[in-house]
């Protein structure tokens, strides 16, 4: 028996919008810790890891660990039928091949049930080691989104370099080149508008902009984004989900031939 009641149902809607174009099918894992997902894109270039902690739900009942295989496009279709202010409850029964999404309007005058078929998915759970990163950049998520979008009109890849000068995003394409440098800026009205650069050592890595642009679909989930870079690891692009957890995207770098 599984029953998860999420008062801020829009969070789940936003999570699906952020993941459905990257991953087709995925197992949602439910345990005492929370509601989580780990999945790679079909080419194994990117990985998404989601955690919505149990404490963030108004009601969280999960009698035993359960894994539910879902087609994210179909799940998104169903969640789009929920209002932005609706409370969403996810319900499942042991051994059932369906999951139910219940939507309640804020004043309880409309209650909807959507039952979705589950699917068997061979999950490949990966161990993600705790790591020291060479540099961690925290910046407004809208700014990161703007940079990725702007650069993708010029080139296909971006070089992200962190030095003591700041973080530089560079691209080149048939029409020319572009460089955007963001310096640390803590003198802002609100903490989420700050750009904070922690650098242990300079780092420079190349990534496919197509994937970074896909990650920025998570922008509505958080005012700020954290980009963690190490020359030995995939970049981590993390959006914190207020009071609940996070969505993290990992992207393997381009490697010099």
């Amino acid at each position: 028996m599984l029953e998860l009641r999420l008062v801020q149902g829009s969070l789940l809607k936003k999570v699906l919008e952020a993941t459905k174009d990257l991953v087709t099918d995925a197992n949602f894992d439910c345990s005492a810790t929370g509601f989580s997902l780990q999945a790679m894109d079909s080419s194994h270039v990117a990985l998404v890891a989601l955690l919505l902690r149990s404490e963030g739900f108004e009601h969280y009942r999960c009698d035993r660990n359960i894994s539910m295989g879902m087609n994210l496009n179909n799940m998104s279709k169903m969640l789009k039928c929920a209002g932005n202010d609706d409370i969403i409850t996810i319900k499942g029964d042991d051994g059932s091949d369906t999951v139910t999404f219940m939507f309640e309007s804020p004043n309880q005058d409309k209650i909807s049930d959507f039952e979705m078929k589950l699917m068997d998915i061979d999950s490949e759970h990966l161990g993600i080691p705790e790591a020291e990163y060479h540099a961690i950049v925290k910046m407004p998520s809208s700014e990161f989104q703007r940079i990725c979008k702007d650069l993708s009109s010029i080139g296909d890849t971006v070089v992200i370099s962190v030095t003591k000068e700041g973080v530089k995003f560079s691209t080149r394409g048939d029409i020319g080149t572009a460089n955007i440098v963001c310096r640390q800026n803590k003198t802002v009205d609100k903490p989420e508008e700050a750009t904070i650069i922690e650098m242990n050592e300079p780092v420079s890595l190349t990534f496919a902009l197509r994937y970074l642009n896909s990650f920025t679909k998570a922008t509505p989930l958080s005012e700020s984004v954290t980009v963690s870079l190490s020359s030995e690891l995939p970049v981590v692009v993390e959006y914190k989900i207020a009071d609940m957890g996070y969505i993290r995207f990992y992207l393997a770098p381009k490697i010099e031939d």
């Binding site: 790679m40 080419s43 194994h44 270039v45 990117a46 990985l47 490949e124 759970h125 990966l126 161990g127 993600i128 080691p129 890849t157 190349t206 496919a208 690891l233 995939p234 990992y250 393997a252 770098p253 381009k254 490697i255 010099e256 031939d257």
Partner: peptide, 14 residues
């Protein structure tokens, strides 16, 4: 020239 790296070369299946 560069080639695209793969997540599975960084993270191992468990």
């Amino acid at each position: 020239d560069s080639k695209q790296g793969n997540i599975l070369s960084f993270f191992k299946k468990i």
